[in-house]
Structure formats: C-alpha cells, structure tokens
Design a binder for these strands. Structure first.
Lengths: 192, 192
DNA sequence: CGTTCTTGTTAATGAGCGTTAACGTCATTT
DNA sequence: AAATGACGTTAACGCTCATTAACAAGAACG
C-alpha cells in the first residue's frame, strides 16, 4: 500500500499549518509571517515553495475536493448494486474525513470565494460531482418527490456531518463517530 | 402586535447590508467604503452611526444570539410540560430564523473570533444557554447515555438546520422548511 | 576547488484600508 | 434671524501586509 512513513516535506508542513491557521482565523486574518513562523521559517521564505498566499489556499481547497470525490467514487464502486451499503459507506467515509481534517472541513465552505476564478470553478465542479454521488443513491433508496428536495437533504446532512469543528472533543472519537452515523441515517430515513 | 411597518432607520439599513456583505465575503473581505456604498453614503459617513467597523459586527452577532435565545425560551415556556411539542417548536423556530436571515446564520459561526473579548464572551454565553435549552429537552425525550453525546447531537442538528445558506433556492420555502423538519426529527429519533 | 542550485535571511516597496480631520448643508430650535 | 445639531462629503494619515530585491550559506556535483 501507499501509507507513507516518510518525513513530511516542507511544502506539506506549510500546507498543514496554513490550513490550521486559515481555519482558526480566516484567510485574511492570517499573515504570511505567521504561517512562516509556524513552520520555523520567516515570512517571505514561503515564496520559495509557493507563488503566493492565494496559491496555498487554492491547493488546499482543490486538494480537499479531489480527495472527497475520489474517496466517494471508490466507495460507490466497491458497494455498487447495494444502495443501502453505498450510502452507509459514503457516510462513514465523510465522517472519517471530517474527523481527520477538521480544519480543512472548515475551510471548505468558508473561504471558497477567495479563490481565483479558475480555481473556484474547479472546486465547485468537484463539489457538484461529489454531491451528485450522494443524490443518486439517496433517490434510489428513498423515493423523495423532486430532485431539488433530494439535493437539499444531502446538503443538510453535509451540514450535520461537518459540524465536527464545533464539537469540542468532549466525547471520544469513536463515540462521536457513532452519534454522527446514527443521526445521518436517521435523517435520511425520515425522507421515506 | 409589534409588526413594524415604519421605514427602516439608517442604522438598520447599515446593519442589514453589512450582514449581507460580511456573509458573502467575510469580515476582513469587506471595506467600509463598500458598506457605505450599499446604503448610498460614502465610507466615513458610517462613523456617524457606529464607532467603527468592529462595532457593526459585534451588534450583529450579539443581536442574533439574543434573538435566538429569546425565541427559544418563549417557545420552551409555551409548550412546557410536553417535551415532544417543545422540541418540535424549537426546530420550527430555528428553521424560520435560518430561512429568514441566511446571512446572519452564516456570520454566527464564521466570524465570532473577530470580536473584542467582552463581546465574544457575551455571545458565547448566549449560545451556550440556547444549546442548553435544546439539550435539556432532547435528554428528556431520548435517553442518550451521556450529556456529551446529547450536546454533540444538538450541535450536529444545528449544522443541519444552518445548511440553508448552501441551498440555492432551488425549492420553494415551504418545501425546504418541510424537508428540514423531517430531517431534524429523523436525526433526533435515531438517538433512541 | 569552483560552480551552481536550493533554501533561507533581512530590508524595501507599494497597495489597501480603517480611521480621523476639516469642512459643508439642511432642519430644527430659540 | 441666529444658533445648534444631525448627517454627509472629500482629503489626509498611519498601519498592516503581501510581495519583491538583494544578499548569504551550505549541499551537490563537475
């Protein structure tokens, strides 16, 4: 498998810290000096690794969207033919992602407009495809009247699953995971 | 009743436009000139009505939190004794609010850290009390093991209900309202 | 050993932006 | 009619901050 054990490259360090800082105080609220300091180099040193501050955000957002979509597609194929299993797998995958990368989840819907037009379009397109994955299986399972309603339901459940950043880790990971699973399934179930 | 038909005062115009702009592009992403232009006066003219840009955000966030809490308390009293009715009323009220004031919902969890310490504390306290209202009735209805789980569930359902800004108005208001109601009840129901 | 590429550094630049100053203009009051 | 206060305006100040310039020090390599 490709589970990496290497030391993280400098680029990766930067992206990780930038994600954390952007999530905490917003894109405009964080200075390049601060990002640099977080990885032990000073402000302008970042420009050896990225063409600019915007580029960091772009790479983060595109990266998230791609990972979400790829994961979703893989899961949809693995369980193809059994919609119930597909939905369960999509939910599990989304929860894993939301719990592993809370800062990225926060960025995902918070800072999309700060992107250059081209990047924003790309992210939006990836998001749409990911949503579509869910809408298809939801409509297979629960015959909700209109597609607009199915789409609304999917977005709403995303909101539910993406609430992890607001949950101080008051409960352990497995507990939170279980609660979110039950809530998500319960919500969709109420569409019948 | 107190349904106002008066023309909105200048202060109110400013707050409304500021809310919209802050929600669209973030607190730091909006300039005072822009806010001024949105109400037909020019940048520094705002300082006749507010001591500064921060004050606008503060008044918005404190205002939201107070309205949410007040509304919640009123509903909790009106249906006191019947937990099922209380929860239903809280859900309806929250949905109404989320649909009426999408920009404010967005601000509510996005720009809290930009506040001065005192204001932020006040908002946090109001939020906690509002959450508490929900947690109490949820625990009455669904004997979920720990309080942490109940709290997590409530936050998650808030995420669900607050997803309205992501829903382009693809479906009509009453449709969206119905979907959200069913989803929220279904989610809580899965706690049993 | 000299050259070059990589990866930093600090100092300077220049734009954006919140805020204040200084100044008008009505409407209201005395 | 004079004075005052509410509500705007434009010009200037000062600070923050992303980005660029100019320069160093060590690794890779001929």
């Amino acid at each position: 498998m490709s589970t990496r054990t290497d030391a993280p490259t400098r680029r990766e360090q930067i992206l990780k810290e930038a994600a954390r800082l952007f999530a905490e105080r917003g894109f405009h609220g964080v200075g390049v000096d601060e990002i640099g300091a977080a990885v032990g180099i000073s402000g302008p040193g970042l420009y050896r690794h990225f063409p600019g501050k915007d580029a960091m955000l772009a790479e983060l957002l595109v990266g998230i969207s791609e990972r979400l979509l790829d994961g979703g597609r893989r899961r949809a194929e693995e369980a193809a033919g059994d919609p119930r299993a597909v939905l369960a797998s999509l939910i599990d995958g989304h929860i894993d992602f939301a719990l592993d990368d809370r800062p990225l989840i926060t960025l995902h819907d918070r800072e999309l407009d700060r992107l250059r037009d081209a990047d924003r379009k790309r992210v939006r397109q990836l998001q749409r495809q990911y949503v579509e994955l869910w809408v298809v299986v939801v409509r297979e399972l629960y015959p909700v009247p209109t597609e607009a309603e199915a789409r609304a339901a999917v977005h709403a459940v995303f909101g539910l699953l993406n609430s992890t950043p607001h949950l101080g880790p008051g409960a352990g990971r497995t507990v939170t995971e279980g609660v979110l699973q039950r809530l998500a399934h319960g919500a969709f179930g109420a569409l019948a």
